[in-house]
Simulated scan of single mutants.
Amino acid sequence: MLTPEEAAEETRGALDMRKRFARDVNRRLHVPLTDQRAYGQRLQAALDEKDLGALAGEFVILVDRSANVQALFIYFRAMPDEPWLMIGASPVATGRPGEFDHFLTPLGVFEHTPLNMDFRAEGTMNQNNIRGYGRRDMRIYDLGWVDGERGWGKGGYSQMRFQMHATDPDRLEPLLGIRHSKGCVRIPATLNAFIDHNGIIDAEYQALVDSGKSLWVLHSDREITPWAGRFIVVVDSERKTRPAWSPAPGGKARAKVPAGADTAD
């Protein structure tokens, strides 16, 4: 158990990541403090449901899949009795229902573990001339097989491979902010690199490295944070209107979308 002085020092250190986020991530959302607190409470409620309510001392990624939000937040707290504090937020794209093989992005708490080993994008084009995983070397955060809610036919649930990854930088990244994937979470390339370089959710990967394992998926120049975490949490705020701090992409971005763009996942 940390002393109050130690907890304050941990918080100051972790909150320095806000400066790196502002410097390194080019797609940022300026979330009002009231909403930052509200999402911190949503995060806590989701953790409570999984008996993880005492989680502290590590970064956690939170995603709101609401059609009117489509955002990712990074949170931290030093002690279980403290409120969650936001490090930064960015627009994302989650699962768009309505077509075959399109899932709603699953809700819940997902552990990022080497049991479902990450990999890196090859940067190649698919049949629709889209780089579905983004530029070469972008990291794909693999969360394994999960039960996904089908967004076609009569609904129900099927197994889907749940991942978080970058997307085509020219054609699809400008569309972040609306539902547009087959079920995965698409994120900006600079956010992908930020999470990767700082090891934001790499606690279990680092444990393997500390035990003497060599993992090709980890870059040798990474600077893993002392507060590396393990969890990605997905919620749905079900907001009825879009908040001003999470604008939808404009008409120019939508007009440039090629056929088959939503089949890239």
Rank of each mutant, 00 (worst) to 15 (best):
A45D: 12
L52E: 06
S237L: 06
E6Q: 15
Y133N: 13
Q159I: 04
P80N: 09
P243A: 10
N129Y: 05
D81T: 01
D221C: 06
D170W: 01
R139F: 11
L172K: 15
V235I: 15
A56K: 06
A93K: 03
D265P: 02
Q70A: 05
W152E: 09
E173G: 07
I195H: 01
V234N: 08
A207P: 04
H102S: 14
T124K: 13
A264Y: 03
F119H: 05
T3H: 07
L72M: 09
A189Q: 12
F59L: 12
L104A: 11
D168L: 01
L33R: 12
I224E: 08
A46Y: 15
R179C: 05
D170R: 05
M138N: 08
F73G: 15
R136N: 09
P91N: 04
L104G: 12
A22I: 06
V146T: 06
K154A: 14
D118P: 14
K252G: 00
T124C: 14
T263Y: 10
N129Q: 10
V235F: 14
P80A: 07
F162Y: 06
P83T: 00
R12F: 07
E173V: 06
A8C: 10
G95S: 15
R139P: 02
K154M: 07
G177E: 01
Y75I: 03
I201T: 05
T34G: 15
R37A: 09
D236K: 05
R27T: 08
G40Q: 14
Q41E: 14
S90K: 03
F110D: 01
R18I: 08
D170F: 02
M17D: 05
R20C: 10
G40M: 12
P226K: 15
G156F: 04
G57N: 14
T3Y: 13
H30S: 10
D137K: 07
L72A: 11
T241H: 13
M79F: 02
P32E: 05
R23K: 08
G156V: 14
E149G: 05
A193K: 15
S211F: 03
M117Y: 02
G132V: 11
R135P: 10
Q159W: 12
R27P: 01
Q41K: 07
L176M: 02
R65A: 11
V257Y: 01
Q127W: 06
W84A: 00
H165E: 03
S220E: 09
D265W: 02
P83F: 00
A38T: 12
S214P: 01
V209F: 01
Q163R: 08
L2F: 09
A244S: 09
L85P: 00
D262H: 02
L107Q: 07
G13A: 10
E223I: 13
L215C: 08
